[in-house]
């Protein structure tokens, strides 16, 4: 026998729906994922802009910054994908790699400037 539904079930609640506390309670791993997507879009916008508007320092700064975030977070996923770093350290990877990326970014910026 099938358990038929004679009463109305409410359609599934969605992630964040009716959930006043959800967004401020998001996990850092999720921020990392979202930030990588956001920087991806930023790169798509900034790169053509950079070709059109050559030698604009602010543009170069933004582009390099976006690339830094995107690359470090991407590197994190690769490290996790191939089990080069244990998944327990995923949060440490976010802070560590992003921090390292920003340091390199600062050095590069200071060099070319």
């Amino acid at each position: 026998m099938k358990q038929e539904d004679t009463i109305n079930y409410r359609k599934p609640l969605q992630w964040g729906e009716f959930d006043p506390n959800r967004r401020r309670n998001m996990f850092v791993g999720m921020w990392a994922w979202m930030w990588q997507r956001i920087t991806a879009v930023a790169i798509i916008v900034l790169l053509p802009l950079h070709i059109v508007l050559t030698y604009k320092p602010w543009l170069q700064f933004l582009l390099l910054l976006a690339v830094t975030f995107h690359a470090t977070l991407g590197l994190r996923v690769i490290l996790l994908d191939f089990d080069l770093v244990k998944v327990e350290y995923q949060k440490a990877l976010i802070w560590g790699l992003t921090g390292l990326g920003l340091v390199v970014f600062a050095l590069v910026w200071w060099l070319i400037r």
């Binding site: 996990f27 791993g29 999720m30 990392a32 994922w33 996923v77 996790l80 994908d81 998944v87 995923q90």
Partner: peptide, 8 residues
């Protein structure tokens, strides 16, 4: 998508 929500 490697968000780790499930793990958390």
């Amino acid at each position: 998508r490697t968000e780790f929500n499930c793990t958390e």
